[in-house]
């Protein structure tokens, strides 16, 4: 069995696989992780679950600057911290992610 040890950097795809100002998902067991690519080619990884009370995914949202506006309730979530902006309160889990050339490496533990 493929057992992941402390902070494995796992290649999950390449930068061009994700549209600018878009996101794609990585399935990790029961968890879905959304990998976002901003207009300036930065990448972020957040659990694909809105911290709003009614839940729902983040990956289909609209990406602007380093934020995503979630599609079901229009909360704005920071891609850097996973925190809801404005008066909304909540935070979603963030994962370490980095680029090696064009390869996206996701830090899993």
């Amino acid at each position: 069995m493929n057992v992941l040890t402390l902070q494995d950097w796992v290649p999950v795809g390449t930068l061009p696989d994700i549209p600018r100002q878009g996101a794609r998902c990585v399935r990790w067991g029961q968890t879905t992780i959304a990998i976002f690519r901003t207009a300036c080619d930065r990448v972020f990884a957040l659990e694909d679950r809105s911290p709003s009370a009614k839940g729902g995914p983040l990956s289909p949202g609209i990406v602007h600057d380093v934020y995503v506006t979630e599609p079901l309730h229009n909360w704005v979530i920071s891609l850097e911290t996973g925190e809801a902006q404005g008066a909304d309160e909540g935070q979603v889990r963030c994962f370490p992610v980095k680029l090696d050339g064009e390869t996206i490496l996701l830090g899993l533990r």
Binding site: D17, V26, R27, T31
Partner: peptide, 10 residues
């Protein structure tokens, strides 16, 4: 399509 599918957590 998902970007990738990884095995479940250890």
């Amino acid at each position: 399509k998902p970007l990738a599918t990884l095995p479940a957590e250890a």
